[in-house]
């Protein structure tokens, strides 16, 4: 599991690095202590920063949500451009009607890779997602009803997404989609 996770993070390194940076920045703003600024340690924490437990539910939620959301916002436009170009339209390295070279294919490829790398790093570390879920919905939880209702969808999504990232399933999906787009 750990090696799958690390492989996934290495394949999406630009996104992993940026996600760790956003985490650090957000925790700094939220005044949550961060242990180190080594963003790319090759271990189960790759692409994340080791931090202390946030002191409130709001900080915990924002710490989990905002870094990934920033990566999502920045990754979506280039990823969509690349996916529409290569996967949907099927743009290849040459223009089929004329035989001319199509440099836009390589632009789409880069956009797909960078955008995809950002999108493969939008969920918190599994233990952080679990912690948020427990703070919200465990028997010991003292979260209010409104918080429980409002945060249900995002925290559930983050929990599921964390599992996807843990097993690098999102990276696998992106790769398969790209290969289908290029060859099929």
């Amino acid at each position: 599991m750990s090696s799958l996770y690390i492989l996934g993070k290495i394949l999406s390194l630009p996104g992993a690095f940026l996600k760790a940076f956003w985490e650090h920045l957000v925790y700094k703003i939220l005044k949550v202590p961060v242990e180190s600024n080594a963003y790319l340690n090759i271990d189960e924490g790759l692409g994340h920063v080791e931090h202390d437990h946030p002191s409130s539910l709001l900080r915990l939620f924002l710490g989990n949500f905002l870094p990934g959301f920033l990566n999502f916002l920045l990754g979506l436009p280039p990823f969509l451009a690349g996916a529409l170009g290569i996967v949907y339209l099927g743009v290849g390295p040459t223009v089929i009607e004329t035989g001319a070279k199509a440099p836009i294919f390589y632009v789409y490829l880069l956009a797909y890779f960078i955008g995809g790398a950002f999108l493969c790093n939008i969920f918190p570390l599994l233990e952080d997602s679990h912690l948020l879920w427990e703070k919200l919905y465990s028997s010991k939880s003292n979260a209010g009803l409104i918080a429980k209702v409002l945060l249900f969808v995002p925290s559930a999504l983050m929990l599921v997404g964390s599992y996807l990232e843990q097993y690098a399933l999102n990276v696998l999906f992106m790769l398969v989609m790209l290969l289908v787009g290029i060859f099929a």
Binding site: P14, F17, L18, A20, F21, W22, H24, L25, K28, K31, P33, V34, E35, S36, N37, Y39, D52, L73, L74, G75, P77, P78, I114, F118
Partner: peptide, 21 residues
């Protein structure tokens, strides 16, 4: 730990990411 500095490479990556986006 609250004083752990942000890495300058992170700022460059963020600026690049915003431009690329």
């Amino acid at each position: 730990m609250l004083k752990t500095p942000l890495r300058w490479q992170g700022f460059i990556a963020a600026v690049f990411a915003i431009l690329f986006s």
